[in-house]
Protein backbone atom coordinates (compact mmCIF):
# COMPACT_ATOMS: atom_id res chain seq x y z
CA UNK A 1 0.00 0.00 0.00
CA UNK A 2 1.36 3.40 -0.89
CA UNK A 3 1.56 6.04 1.76
CA UNK A 4 -0.59 8.50 -0.09
CA UNK A 5 -4.23 7.79 -0.82
CA UNK A 6 -5.09 10.89 -2.78
CA UNK A 7 -2.75 13.44 -4.18
CA UNK A 8 -4.19 16.84 -5.01
CA UNK A 9 -1.81 18.68 -7.25
CA UNK A 10 -2.20 22.41 -7.95
CA UNK A 11 -5.90 22.06 -8.53
CA UNK A 12 -7.89 25.05 -9.72
CA UNK A 13 -11.51 25.06 -10.64
CA UNK A 14 -13.49 27.92 -12.08
CA UNK A 15 -17.13 28.33 -12.82
CA UNK A 16 -18.64 30.66 -15.31
CA UNK A 17 -20.99 33.15 -13.87
CA UNK A 18 -23.26 34.00 -16.72
CA UNK A 19 -24.73 37.42 -16.91
CA UNK A 20 -26.54 36.52 -20.06
CA UNK A 21 -26.52 32.90 -20.97
CA UNK A 22 -27.35 31.36 -24.31
CA UNK A 23 -29.53 28.58 -23.09
CA UNK A 24 -32.07 28.87 -25.81
CA UNK A 25 -31.48 28.68 -29.51
CA UNK A 26 -33.13 32.04 -29.93
CA UNK A 27 -30.66 33.84 -27.74
CA UNK A 28 -27.74 32.00 -29.33
CA UNK A 29 -28.85 33.13 -32.77
CA UNK A 30 -29.72 36.67 -31.77
CA UNK A 31 -26.47 37.36 -29.99
CA UNK A 32 -24.18 35.11 -31.95
CA UNK A 33 -21.96 32.74 -30.11
CA UNK A 34 -20.97 35.11 -27.39
CA UNK A 35 -22.46 34.81 -23.99
CA UNK A 36 -21.43 37.23 -21.31
CA UNK A 37 -19.73 35.67 -18.35
CA UNK A 38 -16.94 36.09 -15.89
CA UNK A 39 -14.88 33.38 -14.34
CA UNK A 40 -15.29 32.66 -10.69
CA UNK A 41 -12.49 30.67 -9.19
CA UNK A 42 -13.94 28.31 -6.63
CA UNK A 43 -10.57 26.69 -6.07
CA UNK A 44 -7.21 28.24 -6.70
CA UNK A 45 -4.01 26.25 -6.81
CA UNK A 46 -4.85 23.82 -4.02
CA UNK A 47 -2.27 21.14 -3.30
CA UNK A 48 -2.13 18.57 -0.55
CA UNK A 49 -1.74 14.88 -0.01
CA UNK A 50 -4.10 12.71 1.93
CA UNK A 51 -2.14 10.01 3.73
CA UNK A 52 -3.47 6.49 3.34
CA UNK A 53 -5.39 5.24 6.34
CA UNK A 54 -6.16 8.67 7.66
CA UNK A 55 -9.46 10.33 8.26
CA UNK A 56 -9.18 13.64 6.55
CA UNK A 57 -11.47 16.58 7.27
CA UNK A 58 -12.11 19.52 4.98
CA UNK A 59 -13.14 22.59 6.94
CA UNK A 60 -13.98 26.15 6.10
CA UNK A 61 -16.84 28.60 6.02
CA UNK A 62 -19.69 28.53 3.54
CA UNK A 63 -18.53 29.24 0.04
CA UNK A 64 -14.95 28.37 0.75
CA UNK A 65 -14.82 25.72 -1.95
CA UNK A 66 -15.09 22.63 0.25
CA UNK A 67 -17.94 21.07 -1.67
CA UNK A 68 -16.39 21.90 -5.02
CA UNK A 69 -13.20 20.20 -3.93
CA UNK A 70 -15.18 17.25 -2.67
CA UNK A 71 -16.95 16.95 -6.01
CA UNK A 72 -13.61 17.08 -7.77
CA UNK A 73 -12.39 14.31 -5.48
CA UNK A 74 -15.48 12.30 -6.34
CA UNK A 75 -14.92 12.67 -10.11
CA UNK A 76 -18.10 14.63 -10.56
CA UNK A 77 -16.36 17.88 -11.45
CA UNK A 78 -13.09 18.00 -13.29
CA UNK A 79 -10.52 20.62 -12.37
CA UNK A 80 -9.54 23.20 -14.99
CA UNK A 81 -5.93 23.02 -13.94
CA UNK A 82 -3.92 20.55 -11.97
CA UNK A 83 -4.76 16.96 -11.30
CA UNK A 84 -6.12 14.70 -8.63
CA UNK A 85 -4.62 11.24 -8.42
CA UNK A 86 -6.34 8.48 -6.52
CA UNK A 87 -4.52 5.42 -5.33
CA UNK A 88 -7.34 2.96 -4.85
CA UNK A 89 -11.05 2.65 -5.43
CA UNK A 90 -13.10 5.72 -4.60
CA UNK A 91 -16.69 5.82 -3.47
CA UNK A 92 -18.49 9.08 -2.88
CA UNK A 93 -21.39 9.66 -0.57
CA UNK A 94 -22.56 13.13 -1.44
CA UNK A 95 -26.21 12.39 -0.98
CA UNK A 96 -27.73 9.17 0.21
CA UNK A 97 -30.53 7.51 -1.62
CA UNK A 98 -30.06 9.41 -4.87
CA UNK A 99 -31.08 7.08 -7.66
CA UNK A 100 -33.69 5.21 -5.68
CA UNK A 101 -36.71 4.39 -7.73
CA UNK A 102 -39.76 5.01 -5.60
CA UNK A 103 -41.91 2.28 -7.17
CA UNK A 104 -39.32 -0.44 -6.67
CA UNK A 105 -38.92 -2.40 -3.46
CA UNK A 106 -36.09 -1.91 -1.01
CA UNK A 107 -34.51 -5.12 -2.24
CA UNK A 108 -34.56 -4.05 -5.89
CA UNK A 109 -33.24 -0.65 -4.96
CA UNK A 110 -30.30 -2.18 -3.12
CA UNK A 111 -29.24 -3.86 -6.35
CA UNK A 112 -29.94 -0.80 -8.46
CA UNK A 113 -28.22 1.68 -6.19
CA UNK A 114 -25.33 -0.68 -5.50
CA UNK A 115 -24.60 -0.95 -9.18
CA UNK A 116 -24.83 2.81 -9.65
CA UNK A 117 -22.20 3.11 -6.93
CA UNK A 118 -20.04 0.65 -8.80
CA UNK A 119 -20.62 -2.69 -7.10
CA UNK A 120 -20.96 -5.87 -9.11
CA UNK A 121 -23.99 -8.08 -8.67
CA UNK A 122 -21.89 -10.72 -6.94
CA UNK A 123 -20.61 -8.20 -4.43
CA UNK A 124 -24.08 -6.94 -3.68
CA UNK A 125 -25.41 -10.45 -3.20
CA UNK A 126 -22.58 -11.17 -0.83
CA UNK A 127 -23.19 -8.04 1.21
CA UNK A 128 -26.94 -8.06 0.95
CA UNK A 129 -27.52 -9.36 4.48
CA UNK A 130 -25.10 -6.89 5.92
CA UNK A 131 -26.73 -3.98 4.13
CA UNK A 132 -30.22 -4.94 5.24
CA UNK A 133 -29.01 -5.57 8.74
CA UNK A 134 -27.23 -2.24 8.98
CA UNK A 135 -30.19 -0.29 7.63
CA UNK A 136 -32.62 -1.91 10.05
CA UNK A 137 -35.46 -2.09 7.54
CA UNK A 138 -35.68 -5.91 7.24
CA UNK A 139 -39.40 -5.95 7.78
CA UNK A 140 -40.09 -3.59 4.90
CA UNK A 141 -37.47 -4.73 2.44
CA UNK A 142 -40.06 -5.96 -0.06
CA UNK A 143 -42.16 -2.81 0.15
CA UNK A 144 -41.73 -0.05 -2.43
CA UNK A 145 -39.43 2.60 -1.00
CA UNK A 146 -41.99 5.34 -1.55
CA UNK A 147 -43.75 3.96 1.52
CA UNK A 148 -40.63 4.29 3.65
CA UNK A 149 -40.33 6.95 6.28
CA UNK A 150 -37.67 9.50 5.52
CA UNK A 151 -35.47 7.96 8.19
CA UNK A 152 -35.74 4.49 6.69
CA UNK A 153 -35.03 5.88 3.25
CA UNK A 154 -31.87 7.58 4.36
CA UNK A 155 -30.74 4.63 6.45
CA UNK A 156 -31.08 2.26 3.54
CA UNK A 157 -29.19 4.64 1.26
CA UNK A 158 -26.44 5.04 3.79
CA UNK A 159 -26.20 1.31 4.39
CA UNK A 160 -25.69 0.68 0.68
CA UNK A 161 -23.11 3.41 0.27
CA UNK A 162 -21.05 2.40 3.27
CA UNK A 163 -20.92 -1.18 2.05
CA UNK A 164 -19.38 -0.30 -1.29
CA UNK A 165 -16.17 -1.01 0.58
CA UNK A 166 -13.88 1.45 -1.16
CA UNK A 167 -10.27 2.21 -0.37
CA UNK A 168 -11.15 5.87 -0.23
CA UNK A 169 -14.52 7.10 0.96
CA UNK A 170 -15.59 10.66 0.21
CA UNK A 171 -18.38 11.90 2.48
CA UNK A 172 -20.37 15.11 2.51
CA UNK A 173 -22.24 16.24 5.62
CA UNK A 174 -24.29 13.04 5.59
CA UNK A 175 -23.50 11.97 9.10
CA UNK A 176 -26.39 14.00 10.35
CA UNK A 177 -28.88 11.34 9.30
CA UNK A 178 -31.08 9.06 11.32
CA UNK A 179 -31.61 8.93 15.06
CA UNK A 180 -28.80 8.93 17.56
CA UNK A 181 -28.72 5.16 17.67
CA UNK A 182 -28.14 5.04 13.93
CA UNK A 183 -25.55 7.78 14.12
CA UNK A 184 -23.71 5.76 16.71
CA UNK A 185 -23.72 2.82 14.30
CA UNK A 186 -22.37 4.98 11.48
CA UNK A 187 -19.69 6.34 13.68
CA UNK A 188 -18.67 2.81 14.62
CA UNK A 189 -18.54 1.94 10.94
CA UNK A 190 -16.12 4.78 10.28
CA UNK A 191 -13.92 3.59 13.11
CA UNK A 192 -13.90 0.10 11.58
CA UNK A 193 -13.03 1.68 8.30
CA UNK A 194 -10.02 3.40 9.68
CA UNK A 195 -8.92 0.29 11.47
CA UNK A 196 -9.01 -1.57 8.18
CA UNK A 197 -6.53 0.96 6.83
CA UNK A 198 -9.00 2.78 4.61
CA UNK A 199 -9.04 6.47 3.95
CA UNK A 200 -12.01 8.70 4.66
CA UNK A 201 -12.32 12.25 3.42
CA UNK A 202 -15.17 14.22 4.88
CA UNK A 203 -16.66 17.66 4.89
CA UNK A 204 -18.41 18.87 7.97
CA UNK A 205 -19.51 22.11 9.55
CA UNK A 206 -19.56 20.53 12.92
CA UNK A 207 -16.14 21.04 14.47
CA UNK A 208 -17.09 18.47 17.09
CA UNK A 209 -17.40 15.78 14.44
CA UNK A 210 -14.16 16.77 12.80
CA UNK A 211 -12.33 16.83 16.13
CA UNK A 212 -13.74 13.49 17.08
CA UNK A 213 -13.11 11.68 13.83
CA UNK A 214 -10.30 13.25 11.90
CA UNK A 215 -6.60 12.99 12.41
CA UNK A 216 -5.76 15.20 9.46
CA UNK A 217 -7.48 18.29 8.17
CA UNK A 218 -7.28 21.00 5.55
CA UNK A 219 -8.71 24.48 5.96
CA UNK A 220 -9.99 26.23 2.87
CA UNK A 221 -10.87 29.87 2.67
CA UNK A 222 -12.19 31.55 -0.47
CA UNK A 223 -10.91 28.74 -2.63
CA UNK A 224 -7.41 28.82 -1.26
CA UNK A 225 -5.76 26.36 1.00
CA UNK A 226 -4.82 28.00 4.32
CA UNK A 227 -3.34 25.20 6.37
CA UNK A 228 -3.14 21.49 6.07
CA UNK A 229 -1.77 18.97 8.50
CA UNK A 230 -2.74 17.46 11.82
CA UNK A 231 -6.33 18.05 12.72
CA UNK A 232 -5.96 19.78 16.08
CA UNK A 233 -3.80 22.77 15.06
CA UNK A 234 -5.72 23.21 11.81
CA UNK A 235 -9.05 23.37 13.57
CA UNK A 236 -7.59 25.66 16.16
CA UNK A 237 -6.32 28.04 13.48
CA UNK A 238 -9.68 28.02 11.75
CA UNK A 239 -11.54 28.73 14.97
CA UNK A 240 -9.13 31.50 15.88
CA UNK A 241 -9.72 33.16 12.55
CA UNK A 242 -13.47 33.02 13.19
CA UNK A 243 -12.98 34.63 16.57
CA UNK A 244 -11.17 37.55 15.03
CA UNK A 245 -13.45 37.94 12.08
Amino acid sequence: MSDIAVSVNHVSKSFRLYHERNQTIKSAVMRGRRSVHEDFWALRDVSFDVPAGSTFGLIGSNGSGKSTLLKCLANIYYPNEGAITHFGRVAAMLEVGSGFHSELSGRENIFLNGSILGMSKKEITRKYEEIVDFSGVEKFIDQPVKNYSSGMYVRLGFAIAINVDPDILVVDEVLAVGDSEFQEKCFQKFVDFRRAGKTVILVSHSMETVKLMCDQAAWLSHGELMITGDAQPTIQAYQDSLGQG
Partner: peptide
Protein backbone atom coordinates in the same frame (compact mmCIF):
# COMPACT_ATOMS: atom_id res chain seq x y z
CA UNK B 1 -29.70 15.65 -13.25
CA UNK B 2 -29.82 14.87 -9.52
CA UNK B 3 -28.03 11.60 -9.99
CA UNK B 4 -25.38 13.07 -12.29
CA UNK B 5 -24.55 15.79 -9.80
CA UNK B 6 -24.23 13.41 -6.88
CA UNK B 7 -22.71 10.17 -8.06
CA UNK B 8 -19.94 9.29 -10.43
CA UNK B 9 -20.71 6.60 -12.99
Amino acid sequence: AGLIQKVYF
